[in-house]
Amino acid sequence: MNAPLLELRNIETYYGPIMAIRGVSMTVNEGEIVAVLGANGAGKTTLLKTATGALDSNKGQVLLNGEEIQCRDPDWVARKGIAHVPEGREVFPFLTVAENLAMGAYNRDDKDGAAVDTETVYGYFPALREMRHKMAAYLSGGQQQMLAIGRGFMSRPRLLMLDEPSLGLSPVLVQEIFNIIIRLNREQGLTILLVEQNANVALKVSNRGYVMEVGGMVMDGPSDRLIESEDVKEFYLGKKEEGVRGRRRWKKRKTWR
């Protein structure tokens, strides 16, 4: 078997004295969509930032195709082929849509290829084409998310990391964006690591999933199995038996099996 595209081994990351990630291991194989679920503060974003070098880990390795890439500068990691679409879009507000996309291709030296990929992005997100000369600040939240994904795509990464793409979007838009994520994966062969609060959508589009709690992994498995797990159902999908009284407030103990 080939080495996985991305592998994390026993990662520990601190914010000052606080251990935000306490030993996380996971893998992402070529061509997969992998979802990481977890509540606020579980360490999901920290995990992505550690993988891309925005944060340095105090222990453990990040392997991209078997090569160690932990604790390097983020631009170096980006050139290695990891694109990070951050939480909350973070598009460049005073640049136009086209300029934002061009920023995504900053590291590329094939001008023609970049031009083709710009067209590809406009193909996936027609709304962006119409707005291409507008400043990104004037875009709606959904359009900014599309732009952020498009910008990530422009570096032609081997791995696209998406940090909560559904944040603050209407259900219809969420559906739309996730449909495009699936298409990017199928049509462009893009491997995707997806961090999400919206467990329902994330587990439906992904092949495999991990569940994170207070800085550690508590469960992993194929997404269709996770979606059936009692604990995921109760704690992430908000489905629970109503109980005998019709309004159960207490929560079951999590077992993660």
């Binding site: 592998e7 994390l8 081994r9 026993n10 291991s25 508590v218």
Partner: peptide
Amino acid sequence: VEHHAQTHSVPFTDYRS
């Protein structure tokens, strides 16, 4: 055991693994 695995860089995700 989790502690041992972590200090000795034995990757794992959940209890089963």
